[in-house]
Simulated assay, not measured.
Amino acid sequence: MKVYTTLMLLFLFSFTPSIAAAESIIVVANTADKSIELNRQQVRNLFMGGIMPYDLKAIALPPENHTRVLFNTKIVGLTESRIQSYWAQMRFTGRKKAPKEVEDEMSVLAYLLSHEGAVGYLLAGTPIPDGLSVIFTVQ
Score class of each variant (00 low, 15 high):
L12V: 15
L132P: 08
E23N: 14
R44E: 11
F71G: 00
K2V: 12
S18C: 07
Y86I: 05
L123S: 13
V119N: 03
A118E: 07
T73H: 10
G49Q: 06
F47V: 01
R40H: 08
G50C: 07
T31H: 03
L123I: 01
G50P: 03
E64F: 04
L10Y: 12
T5C: 10
E105S: 03
F92Q: 10
P63W: 05
V69W: 00
A32R: 05
N30L: 03
E37Y: 04
V108G: 02
A21P: 00
D130T: 10
E23D: 12
S81N: 08
L10C: 15
A110T: 15
N45Y: 12
G131K: 10
N65G: 02
G50N: 08
I135T: 07
I36V: 14
Y111K: 04
I128P: 04
M106R: 13
T67F: 03
R44W: 00
R40D: 07
S107C: 08
V119T: 07
A88E: 10
L7W: 09
T137N: 09
G125H: 09
F11H: 14
I135F: 10
L78C: 01
S85V: 00
A32I: 05
P53L: 02
Y111W: 15
L112N: 06
R95H: 06
R40T: 09
E64L: 01
P17E: 12
T126V: 09
G94Q: 11
I19A: 13
S107N: 13
A88W: 09
A118Y: 10
L7S: 13
F11P: 03
Y121N: 01
G125D: 05
L132Y: 11
K34I: 02
L132H: 11
S107Q: 14
L10H: 09
L12E: 13
F92G: 02
V138S: 07
A58C: 05
M90G: 01
M1G: 14
L78S: 05
